[in-house]
């Protein structure tokens, strides 16, 4: 097992190198660079730009160098100094910008995922064990709504209702006075007060999928002979269901948790824009449109790292819950 984990970690290194190269190429793919889109936006505002000035800036940012030199400098900075480069549009080091955003995104995603599971699993079990009962139909109906409704739309509806009928300001993750304040207990409480809205919206979407998975898997497992064996032992129905088929039916949750997290983070972008959340999504989107290559590249690279690490974690988790999976 330990050898397996070490080997997997060793394989992750070339994977991450390849990912970083591809990320860098992708953000360079659109024609032009940050300065040309910067100049274009200035011109659109009617300002006159000196071509010579642009040239000097391009020199300063190293944008006139070949791609591989730029890539080498970027990676060297990350590996040797933890320096992720400079955000050109925000005029600040990338590392000062991304960590708070990433942390908030992580908190939002992990909490939504756990809340989603907490609701999806019991409801899915009920739905499967009471197949075609009225409540199963209701749960199924709501879960299809959950799958079908985009989270940003739900976000708009919730905002509208909260503003108009309850007089609540539900945008953002913090109240105004806390946005720039340093972390404190009061700020955490304030975060929790704001967090429940995006969490319930994301969990509603996540619950729906998880519920369908639980229901479908459990329906398969319920007919397996080992369930009959468990009944024949004289166990209560609840004990039989929760100890045996549910245990096996939940395996997909463990095997998908790795990319589910990265998925939630990037999937929440639209919702974050709608609800004005200070998470990773909106900033990544802005960086991409502004061709702010180091900021965008760093986000993409970190998301990829999370997916790769998450996949390893979910494989280890799955091996732990299902002894049939061998680590060789």
């Amino acid at each position: 097992m330990l050898g397996y984990v070490l080997r997997r970690i060793a394989i992750m290194i070339p994977t991450l190198i390849v990912i970083s190269i591809i990320t860098f190429i992708i953000i360079q793919l659109p024609p032009g660079d940050f300065l040309s889109s910067y100049a274009a936006s200035l011109r659109a505002q009617g300002e006159v730009i000196d071509e010579a000035e642009i040239r000097v800036m391009r020199e300063r940012y190293g944008l006139n160098q070949p791609i591989y030199v730029q890539y080498g400098k970027w990676i060297k900075g990350i590996v040797t100094r933890g320096d992720w480069g400079q955000s050109m549009s925000l005029q600040r080091p990338v590392k000062d910008l991304i960590w708070q955003r990433m942390t908030l995104s992580m908190v939002l995603s992990v909490v939504s995922l756990l809340v989603g599971w907490f609701i999806a699993i019991p409801l899915g079990v009920y739905s499967a064990t009471h197949q075609y009962s009225p409540l199963d139909y209701i749960v199924t109906f709501i879960s299809f709504m959950g799958i079908g409704t985009p989270s940003f739309l739900l976000g708009l509806v919730v905002m509208f209702v909260a503003m108009n009928y309850m007089g609540l300001n539900v945008g953002g993750l913090f109240s105004d006075q806390f946005i720039l304040a340093p972390w404190s207990w009061a700020k955490v409480v304030d975060l929790l007060k704001h967090l429940w809205i995006p969490v319930s919206i994301l969990a509603f979407n996540g619950t729906a999928g998880g519920l369908r998975t639980t229901r479908a898997n459990l329906l398969d497992e319920l007919n397996k002979p080992y369930v009959e064996t468990a009944y024949a032992k004289g166990l209560t129905e609840r004990r039989v269901i929760w100890k045996y088929p549910v245990r096996v039916a939940l395996n997909p949750f463990f095997s998908t948790v790795g990319w589910e997290l990265a998925n939630l983070i990037s999937g929440a972008t639209l919702l974050s824009i709608v609800l004005n959340l200070q998470t990773e999504g909106p900033m990544l989107l802005n960086a991409l449109t502004a061709q702010d290559m180091y900021l965008a590249g760093s986000f993409l690279f970190l998301l990829s790292v999370m997916t790769v690490v998450g996949t390893l974690l979910s494989d280890i988790l799955l091996a732990w819950v299902d002894p049939r999976i061998r680590m060789t």
């Binding site: 064996t229 004289g234 209560t236």
Partner: peptide, 29 residues
């Protein structure tokens, strides 16, 4: 069939061995 009486008989007074030893035992216990 879900009551306490029959459960006290199942496995204790009357027990059962099934056809498929491959699938009649839980794979994860």
């Amino acid at each position: 069939p879900h009551g306490e009486k029959i459960r006290s008989i199942r496995g204790a007074e009357i027990s059962m061995v099934f056809q498929e030893p491959m699938t009649s035992l839980s794979p994860v216990h």
